[in-house]
């Protein structure tokens, strides 16, 4: 599905990505976790085709990424600047579908379906800025879902919402995973979140970052905010990831 080979990126003389090799299988929910400033966002922007890597290559389904792939959607951290304030919620969700040659009515139906999936069917006619932060991020997720990408990237999607909303949104991601056989890569600095949401966690080191850990998460589904976090397996994985993030030898 996604294949990254020897990816390096530097801003001037400052090397951020120091050679990343990674393979992600179809349908996987991969969490990439690392200390702040480790180049997580650079990695995501490279995969999304927003940034040309200094070296190395990124392949999606065997095709090198040049520009933004058609079958990829991104959920950004800053929802307030990623949703367009001049469009209603439904129009925001429907906008990317214009490229798919759907009729206006079809686009609207798809948008409403996606909003229903994230529990926001009542907010279609509102403007994004009339909603709370958590709801806006749901709209952003709905927009990505309506687009039916093979591949969804999430860049610290829950970094700017409160703890309760964060848990709700984590559960939303778990709920939509596997819809349309989508592969999800979620970037976060939150160790608990990466273990709770992911079925695989990749740990990046400080810049110039490299992959220092690659763990498979065997926690059962459905996951539960309280019960799952109490499992010995969860506690063990969290400790492992935590040590790797801090660079402490296990």
């Amino acid at each position: 599905m996604l294949e990254i080979n020897h990816l390096r990126h530097s801003y001037g003389s400052h090397e951020v990505l120091g050679g990343i090799d990674l393979k992600v299988d179809e349908g996987q929910l991969l969490c990439i976790v690392g200390p702040s400033g480790c180049g997580k966002s650079t990695l995501l922007r490279s995969i999304a085709g927003l940034l040309k890597p200094t070296q190395g290559e990124i392949l999606i389904n065997g095709v090198p990424v040049a520009g933004t792939p058609d079958n990829l959607a991104v959920v950004f951290q800053d929802y307030s600047r990623s949703l367009f304030p001049w469009m209603s919620v439904a129009d925001n969700v429907a906008l990317p579908l214009r490229r798919k040659g759907m009729s206006g009515a079809r686009r609207r139906t798809s948008a409403l379906e996606a909003l229903e999936q994230v529990g926001l069917e009542g907010a279609a006619a509102k403007y994004p800025w009339q909603l709370s932060g958590g709801m806006q991020q749901r709209v952003a997720i709905a927009r990505a879902l309506a687009y039916r990408p093979a591949f969804m990237l999430m860049d610290e999607p829950f970094g700017s919402v409160d703890a309760q909303t964060r848990e709700d949104l984590e559960d939303l991601v778990l709920q939509v995973r596997g819809v349309h056989g989508m592969t999800i890569v979620l970037i976060t600095h939150d160790i608990d979140e990466s273990v709770y949401v992911g079925d695989r966690v990749v740990v990046l080191s400080k810049a110039p970052s490299r992959i220092v850990g690659d763990l498979s998460v065997g926690l059962p589904y459905p996951r539960d905010q309280i019960a799952t976090r109490q499992l010995p397996e969860f506690v063990r994985l969290r400790a492992d990831v935590g040590r790797l993030v801090r660079g402490v030898p296990g």
């Binding site: 058609d70 959607a73 990623s82 906008l95 990317p96 214009r98």
Partner: peptide
């Protein structure tokens, strides 16, 4: 970020101009 969003969702040049 508006432009990044437009690019990520592969908006056409015209849509990018008119709607973003």
């Amino acid at each position: 970020q508006y432009l990044d969003t437009a690019q990520v969702f592969s908006l056409s040049r015209l849509d990018r101009l008119r709607r973003v």
